[in-house]
């Protein structure tokens, strides 16, 4: 496998990626982290079009693009663009293609928006999250972080906790983990457990998974506890949000029930589900995880943007 194999490729869903491809991306990320020089995409233009707020994804793509020598254009919120005047996604994508961008990185509030955008243009489209469905590059960051912490992904027991129904990082991570020999435990209140299509996909791939509501049931057996935020902005019924808010509070006292080597991850931002008393502990992996966003996205952009 070589980087050119990814040229022009859309990154829409983790289900499109094989283990071999993921490992290639991770090896390339490691090289960049080890000091491989940037500037591989001098003169290229990357459009960042974000219809939803973002801190890490937007900034890390912007930094990644700039470190590779690209210029960036676009908008970080729809209020700053003609979207506020009612412009369709269709027209926006066609316009950026017409401007000669070499890659479109987009985030959208509607599910499947990245797939639709990819249908509209020959320029590679990289999803930075679409509604509550997927966030593939975050899942790649997550898997890379696990590989970096443990030296492997196979054989690990991974708990994914929080809002598994509306949280797009949980979906994409689950799909990505299906390439490895892992045991997954989903920890969520019944109303926020994984959607039918995730369960169906994992079952079809022969991935073992269990579900529980109580993190204490499983914390002692996990290698990784992946904590996610309850997605207040996506839960349609405010009373439902009130029922589940604060249902999990991961703190040092709970983690001390875990086995040696347990690592806590979180795609961030966090609200109250992960206590700051974990930050300086040996469990905390989430700032390492966030930092991996830049080299991993550098690796991806350098592969998908045609030289």
């Amino acid at each position: 496998m070589k980087a050119e194999d990814f040229a022009g490729r859309d990154i829409i869903t983790m289900r499109d990626f094989s283990r071999e491809e993921l490992e290639f991306i991770f090896d390339s990320t490691k090289e960049i982290e080890s000091g491989r020089p940037g500037g591989a995409l001098d003169g290229k233009l990357v459009a960042l079009i974000f219809y939803e707020p973002s801190t890490r994804t937007y900034s890390s793509f912007e930094i990644a693009a700039e470190r590779l020598g690209c210029r960036t254009t676009g908008f970080s919120s729809p209020e700053k663009s003609s979207v506020a005047k009612g412009e369709t996604l269709h027209d926006t994508i066609r316009m950026y293609e017409g401007y000669g961008v070499d890659c479109i990185v987009m985030r959208h509030n509607l599910m499947g928006a990245a797939r639709f955008a990819a249908d509209l243009t020959k320029v590679p489209v990289v999803s930075g999250g679409d509604g509550s469905r997927e966030h593939p590059t975050q899942a790649m960051v997550d898997l890379y972080t696990i590989r970096k912490a443990f030296g492997k992904i196979d054989g690990l027991r991974i708990g994914i906790l929080g809002d598994l129904k509306y949280g797009r990082t949980a979906s994409s991570l689950s799909y990505g983990l299906s390439n490895y020999d892992v045991e997954i435990t989903f920890v969520a209140p019944e109303s926020l457990t994984t959607r039918k299509e995730i369960d169906h996909f994992l079952s079809e791939r022969g991935v073992g998974f269990t579900k529980t509501k109580d993190v204490r049931d499983v914390v002692g057996s996990l290698d990784v506890l992946y904590v996610t935020r309850i997605q207040k902005e996506r839960i349609p019924d405010p009373t439902e949000y009130e029922r589940v808010r604060g249902v999990y509070q991961i703190n040092l006292s709970l983690l001390k029930e875990g086995k040696k080597g347990l690592r806590v991850m979180h795609p961030l931002p966090r609200v109250d589900e992960l206590s700051s008393d974990v930050d300086e502990s040996e469990y905390a992996q989430y700032f390492v995880q966030a930092a991996a966003g830049v080299p991993l996205r550098m690796a991806l952009l350098s592969m998908v943007v045609a030289k």
């Binding site: 599910m111 499947g112 928006a113 797939r115 639709f116 509604g131 469905r133 039918k196 299509e197 169906h200």
Partner: peptide, 8 residues
């Protein structure tokens, strides 16, 4: 299964 959002 929806081609866009995967809903079953």
């Amino acid at each position: 299964q929806c081609r866009y959002c995967d809903t079953l």
